[in-house]
Every structure is written in C-alpha cells, then in structure tokens.
C-alpha cells in the first residue's frame, strides 16, 4: 500500500539541516500504524512527505504503486482528492462553512452531484454521531466535535490512506478516546490504511504497529499482540528505552 525507500530530507538554508535519513517504511493495506518520537525527531516531516506536501530530497515514496511526487500539479491535486485523507491537530476546518459544508468539501472539489454528497454526508455523520450539529458553524462546536467533523471530511471520499497528525493533541481524554475508537472502527470496517503521528502513547496504543523514530532515523518498531493495555506498557517501555527523559513526552493518561 505505502512504501518508503531510503527517504531523506535535507532543509537547505544558512545551516543545512538533515531532518530525515534513509527511512524505509512499508504499510500494508488496512494496517493502522503510529509513528512516535521525541520533538524534533522528524515525525511531521515524514508525514508531510507522505502527504505530498513536501518533497523528499532523495528516496522514493510509492502509494498504491504510484509515486505522487512525480505527478503533474493537476494530477497531484486529483490524487490527493481521491486517495488521501487528512486529519490535523488543530482541525483546520474552514470557518466560513457550516459543518455539513466542511464535510462535503472534498466531494465539492470533485464535482460530485449534490444529492450524492448529501447522502454520503448524512451517512458518515450518523456513524460519527454529529448529525445534530450539521448546520452549525465551526465556531459553535466543541473541540471533540470539530475533530469528528475533520474525520468525516477526511473520510467522505473513501480515501485509501488516511493521514493523521496528532489527532488527539487538542482534545481532552474523553474526546481523545472517542476519536481513537472512531479511527479504529473506520480502519476495521472500511479497510482504510491509517498512518498517525503522535506524541501520546495512549493514542498510539490503538495502532497495530508503532514505529519509533529519533533524530531523523528509524529507531525500532513494535507490534501489538495481545491486549491494548499490554501494548501501551510496551510503548512506554520503548520510550524510556529510547533514552528520552520522561518529560520529553506529553502527559500520559491511563
């Protein structure tokens, strides 16, 4: 599904800065992978490269047999619109639009008939439990609701790869748990591949596999076996093994 081969990123500037070095990652279809690492380890750079926002300096990204970085501008726009879905830490909803309009925006850009958009939006809103706020504006809803709207927007066009950047970063523990459960159920029912960057071991413990990166290099990866609780402890252990001070990581919720 997603394959990264020897991806490196160097930021040119007064002092050239090497953000990523020879990253090799492969994600299977329907897999849920979390990427963890301390601040400045290159997690977000990696996500930006996968999401085609940023180009790698060397190396290759292949999504579903296609290298999006080689596509022309318009084809790339189509590719994003059809294959990728995005969830951000600060939601990035357009405040000029209502909740419903925000959700259907990717379809609107694709020129889908209005009737079809309405149906799809209603269906996804029902699953995510936001059908009651469909006509509200984005400043009238809570953070948890906003993130659910963002998930709905990321899902409505049934992308093959869902990319999430700290999706629980701005949420309280209850809302974070709900959002993670939602992502897992989407992952399981729709067989959407999911790649999530996070600081939060609790959120990461919902994944099938966690990849740790440090100073722009792959450090290690662990697989979820038995229960989520045990996986969570393994993640915590790994984080401490990585040698980061305990306070490198945001609050740990149990």
């Amino acid at each position: 599904m997603l394959k990264l081969t020897k991806v490196s990123k160097v930021y040119e500037g007064k002092v050239a800065y090497r953000a990523l070095t020879d990253i090799n990652v492969e994600i299977e279809k329907g897999e849920f992978v979390a990427i963890m690492g301390p601040s400045g380890s290159g997690k977000t750079t990696l996500l930006n490269i996968i999401s085609t926002n940023d180009a790698p300096t060397t190396g290759e990204v292949v999504i579903d047999g296609e290298n999006p970085h080689k596509l022309k501008k318009n084809a790339l726009a189509k590719f994003r619109r059809n294959e990728l879905g995005f969830i951000f830490q600060d939601f990035n909803l357009l405040h000029t639009l209502t909740v419903e309009e925000n959700i259907v925006l990717p379809l609107t850009l694709d020129g889908t008939p209005v009737k079809e958009m309405k149906e799809k939006a209603q269906k996804i809103a029902d699953t995510l439990g936001i059908s009651s706020i469909m006509h509200k504006r984005t400043y009238e809803i809570s953070g948890g609701q906003a993130q659910r709207v963002a998930i709905a927007r990321a899902m409505i066009h049934e992308p093959r790869l869902l990319l999430a950047d700290e999706p629980t970063g701005n949420l309280d523990s209850k809302a974070a748990k709900d959002v993670m459960n939602m992502l897992v159920s989407i992952n399981e029912t729709e067989k959407t591949s999911l790649l999530m960057v996070t600081h939060d071991p609790q959120a990461a413990s919902y994944a099938n596999r966690v990849i740790f990166i440090r100073d722009g290099k792959l450090h290690s990866e662990i697989h979820r076996g038995e229960s989520r609780q045990a996986f969570f402890h393994k993640i915590i252990d790994m984080l401490s093994l990585m040698g980061g001070d305990g306070n490198d990581f945001s609050s740990i919720r149990v």
Binding site: A77, F86, L94, L105, L109
Partner: peptide
C-alpha cells in the same frame, strides 16, 4: 494551502 491539501487543483 488547506484547500489544496484537500485536493483542490490550481485551476479550481
């Protein structure tokens, strides 16, 4: 930028 991330083309 956000619109482009959601797949809006230059033309759009």
């Amino acid at each position: 930028g956000l619109l482009m991330m959601l797949g809006a083309s230059n033309r759009q």
